[in-house]
Amino acid sequence: MNDMRKRHMKQIQTYAFAVKEAVLYLDTHPEDKTALAYFDKYRKLLREATRTYEEHYGPITADGTDTSRGWAWVLEPWPWELDAN
């Protein structure tokens, strides 16, 4: 996996983490406006980062597959194929 791709993936993981934290907080503070805004912001960033990553490098999850060329999901390296990942 090249450097650019790694950095992009790291960015996605960072946004996903922020979203997860906001979710846990909001579960106990459902009316907190600051937290809701934070959640909206990072969810949006997460979705965009995921979309652009998947456009360039292929699907991260099976439902992110672009089906215009068939089931590309199984054409990607499997997680244990470390050299390719």
């Binding site: 993981q13 960072t14 983490f17 922020a18 907190d32 600051t34 934070y38 990072y42």
Partner: peptide, 18 residues
């Protein structure tokens, strides 16, 4: 708990909490 004193997400993911 209140929603303040947050780390940037890049630091948060490293520390295990924002």
């Amino acid at each position: 708990q209140s929603f303040d004193n947050l780390y940037d997400p890049e630091i948060g993911i490293d520390r295990g909490t924002i």
